[in-house]
């Protein structure tokens, strides 16, 4: 953390928003209908954007401000809107019979969270802010990956990938208040393109197999 310490309310607010991001990640892991999952992802993105915004106003960091704005617009609004459109078009609402059952996926999530925080523990002595940020980032990445492992619907897997990306966003934010502007913007637009492509893929899977279960895609092997 830089020399000028932020006011007390602000560090409290950032901590609260981080907690919210974690809670929404668990929300995605436990919710059973796709619209709710997407909504939880939108909440997570908005919360993280807001945290970035808070970190940017004191002291003022112009590029972090820009990144926060783009993150809120793209990840908080555009991508969720697009995902909603997809599930409306393929008219699939629920994740039935996941690979990993809901209680077990929650338990696994808790374990991964504990592991991530334990791994980052030794760092907290030197730079507590970065250590907490990293722990959150690692947790989000692990949970996103765990979500992708456990679910069958392609849309849920896309959401898992987006959660992983949110983890990367947090990591970048906590190590240097965001990567260089151009890299961060490139990443976000990459994400947008990726989501569009994956959306198209979901349509293709739907039209080929009359289902968006990725377990049908098992013939491509040696």
């Amino acid at each position: 953390m830089s020399a000028a310490a932020p006011p007390f309310w602000m560090s409290q607010a950032v901590t609260f928003l981080s907690a919210m991001a974690l809670v929404s990640a668990f929300g995605i892991l436990s919710l059973r209908t796709l619209p709710l999952c997407i909504r939880a992802y939108a909440v997570q993105s908005l919360v993280l954007g807001l945290a970035a915004f808070l970190l940017a106003i004191h002291p003022v960091r112009a590029h972090v401000l820009g990144i926060a704005a783009v993150a809120i617009l793209v990840k908080g609004l555009a991508i969720p809107w697009f995902l909603f459109k997809i599930i409306e078009d393929v008219s699939i609402k629920r994740e039935t019979e996941p690979f990993v059952s809901y209680p077990f996926s929650m338990l696994g999530g808790v374990g991964l969270t504990l592991l991530s925080y334990a791994v980052m523990e030794p760092l907290s002595g030197s730079d507590p802010f970065a250590a907490r940020g990293f722990a959150l980032a690692l947790t989000l990445m692990q949970l996103g990956l765990w979500l992708m492992v456990g679910r069958k619907k392609a849309v849920t897997q896309v959401v898992g990938l987006l959660v992983v990306e949110n983890g990367l966003f947090v990591a970048a934010l906590s190590v240097s208040f965001g990567m260089p502007m151009i890299v961060e913007l490139g990443l976000i637009f990459d994400l947008l393109v990726a989501v569009v492509v994956m959306g198209l893929l979901v349509f293709r899977i739907q039209s080929t197999y009359a289902s968006i279960n990725t377990e049908r895609l098992s013939r491509l092997k040696g």
Partner: peptide
């Protein structure tokens, strides 16, 4: 090991 299932591959990664 090469089951062909996306989930299993992701599981390896995880």
């Amino acid at each position: 090991l090469q089951a062909g299932s996306v989930n299993v591959y992701l599981g390896y990664l995880s």
